[in-house]
Design a protein around this nucleic acid. Structure first.
Length: 809
RNA sequence: GCCCGGGUGGCGGAAUUGGUAGACGCGACGGACUUAAAAUCCGUUAUUCGAAAGGAUGUGGGGGUUCGAGUCCCCCCCCGGGCACCA
């Protein structure tokens, strides 16, 4: 039996918070702003434990910061464009809009049932025309500022979703969404120039607030800065030349051949003159048949084809063969390399396959290393390198050789990045239409702003085949050029849904603005977001794209901040049966049933208590029983407390007052450090103290009673807001939400006594309870009296006040 | 291979940052209440020797620093996550 009726009580308080507008944020308040944001969800229809964890953490922060006197902004909305609704439409014929909005309604109910505070007046949904109108507006701004462009490029094509994907959405050669193979296709597609911001995106990571180190590391890896040099190679007996990029200029004397990627543009010209043209064509055809994953897999034996042509090594004029091989990637560096098999594992492997010359130009200090079995990639000194012999490898010699190349106009210092431009076109229906018109006279023209939004057309069949589904609507496709009025055709692709989520946090701040996506002053006032909370799965995609978006909008002049998210917190995943919960595995634990059986407060407490919030954790059904029991005990304790007689003096109450004071100190500290599991444990401890106090008391002073009630209810409030509100109201007729967070009394943190540990030669021998602040001399005396430890028998005595005494002998 | 995290009872996890390892919770065992069960309450619960008092061992393994190490330093092993033919 439960001590209290959590169902009625929770719904009562949720209504109270709703009607009193506890979550609504007045952006003009005189208090200090605190923008606390949980990542808005894709409306899958059902809340899962990951959402619960995310939104519980977010709400703890919201309520805590409100009590700390901040003007807290905590909005919520929907990442509501995307494939599931469209796939459902293909299957069942239900319109994606209807499908999506039903799920939003359902999910919103569940979120409310958790009791989290959200300013629903600011709610946005990516699929809403009043939202995507502004997504299109921002696209046009990027287009006008040369940050969006359309280009023919080799792109990733998911064979199952039948759409192109961004590099970030390809995991080990497969589609991150459906796991199907991803092919390379040459298509004309829209890109955002994120690569223009590579350096700034990298640097920003050092200037940003508190982010998990792994997320920073993942972004660093993804941006992949690499510093080196670029120089050109002439193809002998021709006018042709091409550039290569290297980070190991120090190994230039060890270059024994050069390699072009099969897609390298110079190959077209080589085909006219190479004695092996047919073989090269055949090789290129074959490597195009391979999937990206196949080509990239390291285990595969390297292949290539000799062009029969030669290049000359710019440092010594040596004549070296030119090969084509698909272990060289066209879209990294220059798509061509100088091959140094003696000091590069990949080149070594390739040289072994085709019996190419391997030359050692670096040796270790002891001159003992040779390259008979494997290349030498470590540091050492140069040999066989002309005037550079005996220089240190890597930096020193690279600098010297670079000087030579630069002076002779052959090469220059160069930094490359792994990050490539963001491919945003999707050949799908349920997304934001790209607001561009293809005019036969004017070329690609942005839709005029007064004709926005470009509405998604109604179509009968959502399947995409060769073209995007939008191409099926003649009314949609055929339009006039906003420039010259000529009959023209619209773009039929929609945008990657990550475009929608790259700016939703801006719209929240000004969601009802009908003239602009947002007001610049409001954004400057509220950004960066003080605390952003979400899953680590967005470490690269969403977080990198959003950072880019804010920087781009800054350069366009729409806002004045450089980073959207100051502090980031990534909560760990909740697993069940050893793996990630998922419908396909049938191991989903449904949060909704716990609302009915245990209540929102118990679920919130358990999800916080089960592990440090950044750790992954296994769902355990028994655990939630524990937090439920705890809440029942708190309830019972306050019933007992209310029955105590009131007396005047309160000397007996000093201990419980001190314990509560210690809890204020400890819980505040844990909250500031996101240590919610230990904060909940502190709440359990103080309740045990209260139980003990009540067991020994028949009467209490009014003052103590109020102190206990106010502080325990306040400390509990961010974690279990319903029950704490109810208890406080029953005892005082007041709303706990109206009061500020308690300050602890610095002077009343230490206990009057403590347990002294008595060690002999570092081993614990006794413990004894003595007064706090006991001096070394007094402690020695106590040890002599109590344990017959005589000071004179020991060489040295270590004493740490209020902790330990150690006799060394 | 490279980059981030981690490794503490049967389980989830604590440990004031160098000072009693195992808080808090789950589970288990014993007891009370009950005709009985559930719920609740009380107790025990790192391992090991011992009837007990008490002793020994113990934070992945091995070394080191220190009066004292889960915590600091060096070497190694294992697990989770990310990236990976990036020149």
């Amino acid at each position: 039996m439960d001590s209290y009726d959590f169902k009625d009580l929770e719904s009562k308080w949720q209504t109270q918070w709703d009607t009193s507008g506890l979550a609504s944020c007045d952006i003009n308040s005189s208090k200090t702003n605190f923008y606390n944001l949980c990542m808005y969800p894709y409306p899958s229809g059902d809340l899962h434990m990951g959402h619960i964890r995310n939104y519980t953490i977010g709400d703890v922060i919201t309520r805590y910061k409100q009590k700390k006197g901040f003007n807290v902004m905590s909005p919520m909305g929907w990442d509501s464009f995307g494939l599931p609704a469209e796939n459902a439409a293909i299957k069942t014929g239900i319109h994606p809009k209807k499908f999506t909005e039903e799920r939003i309604a359902n999910m919103k109910e569940q979120i409310k049932r958790l009791g989290s505070l959200y300013d629903w007046d600011r709610e946005v949904a990516a699929h809403d025309k009043d939202y995507y109108k502004w997504t299109q507006f921002l696209f046009i701004k990027l287009f006008e500022n040369d940050l969006a462009y359309k280009e023919d490029a080799p792109v990733n094509w998911c064979t199952s979703c039948k759409t192109v994907l961004a590099n970030e959405q390809v995991i080990e050669g497969c589609c991150e969404r459906c796991d199907a193979d991803v092919e390379q296709k040459n298509l004309n597609q829209w890109f955002f120039k994120i690569s223009e911001y590579s350096e700034e995106l990298l640097k920003g990571l050092d200037e940003i607030g508190d982010w998990p180190s792994n997320v920073k590391a993942m972004q660093e890896n993804w941006i992949g800065k690499s510093q080196g040099a670029e120089f050109s190679l002439n193809i002998l007996d021709t006018e042709l030349k091409f550039s290569v990029f290297t980070t190991r200029l120090d190994t230039l004397y060890g270059m024994t051949f050069a390699v072009l990627a099969p897609e390298h543009i110079v190959i077209d010209k080589i085909l006219d003159i190479s004695p092996n043209s047919d073989e090269i064509k055949e090789y290129i055809r074959n490597s195009k048949l391979k999937s990206e994953f196949e080509r990239m897999s390291i285990s595969k034996k390297k292949t290539g084809i000799d062009t029969g042509l030669f290049v000359s090594n710019p440092i010594n004029g040596e004549k070296l063969p030119l090969w084509v091989a698909d272990y060289v990637l066209v879209n990294y560096g220059t798509g061509a390399i100088m091959a140094v098999p003696g000091h590069d594992e990949r080149d070594y492997e390739f040289a072994k396959v085709y019996n190419l010359k391997i030359l050692q130009v670096i040796i270790d200090e002891n001159h003992s290393i040779n390259i008979d079995d494997k290349p030498f990639t470590d540091r050492g000194i140069l040999i066989n390198s002309g005037e550079y012999n005996n220089l240190k490898s890597h930096e020193e010699s690279s600098v010297e050789i670079l000087k030579h190349l630069t002076m002779n106009g052959i090469g220059e210092k160069k930094t490359t990045f792994r990050l490539r431009d963001w491919l945003i076109s999707r050949q799908r229906y349920w997304g934001c239409p790209i607001p561009v018109i293809n005019c036969s006279k004017c070329g690609l023209v942005a839709e005029s702003l007064d004709r926005l939004p470009v509405l998604l057309p109604e179509i009968d069949d959502y399947k995409n085949s060769k073209d995007s589904p939008l191409a099926k609507s003649k009314d949609f496709v055929n339009t006039s050029c906003p420039n010259c009025g000529t009959e023209s055709k619209r773009e039929t692709d929609t945008m990657d849904t990550f475009v929608d989520s790259s700016w939703y946090f801006l719209r929240f701040l000004d969601s009802n603005n009908i003239n602009l996506p947002f007001d610049k002053e409001i954004i400057n006032d509220w950004l960066p977001i003080n605390q952003y909370i979400g899953g680590v799965e967005h470490a690269i995609l969403h977080l990198l794209y959003s950072r880019f978006f804010v920087k781009a909008l800054r350069d366009i002049g729409m806002l004045d901040v450089s980073e959207p998210f100051h502090n980031l917190f990534s909560q760990g995943m909740i697993n069940f049966g050893g793996t990630k919960m998922s419908k396909s595995k049938g191991n989903v634990v449904d949060p909704e049933s716990y609302f009915a059986t245990h209540g929102a407060d118990a679920l919130r407490l358990y999800i916080l208590f089960m592990a440090p919030p950044s750790d992954g954790v296994e769902w355990n059904d028994g655990g939630i029983e524990g937090t439920k029991r705890f809440l029942n005990k708190v309830w019972d304790n306050f019933e007992k407390l209310s029955l105590l007689e009131i007396k005047n003096q309160h000397e007996e109450d000093l201990e419980i007052i001190r314990k509560i004071n210690q809890s204020i100190y400890s819980i505040t500290k844990h909250l500031d450090k996101f240590e919610f599991n230990t904060a909940v444990s502190d709440l359990m401890k103080i309740n045990i103290e209260l139980t003990n106090f009540l067991g020994n008391s028949t009467a209490i002073s009014q003052e103590t009673k109020e102190y206990i009630t106010f502080n325990i209810c306040t400390l509990l409030y961010p974690f279990a807001p319903h029950i704490s509100s109810e208890i406080y109201y029953l005892n005082t007729n007041q709303n706990i939400a109206d009061f500020t967070w308690p300050e602890f009394d610095e002077a009343n943190l230490t206990n009057p006594t403590f347990e002294l540990v008595v060690q002999i030669n570092g081993k614990k021998k006794h413990t004894i309870i003595i007064d706090t602040g006991t001096t070394k001399e007094e402690a020695e005396k106590i040890c002599e009296i109590e344990f017959q430890i005589e000071k004179k028998n020991y060489k040295k005595i270590i004493f740490v006040e209020d902790k330990i005494i150690n006799f060394i002998g």
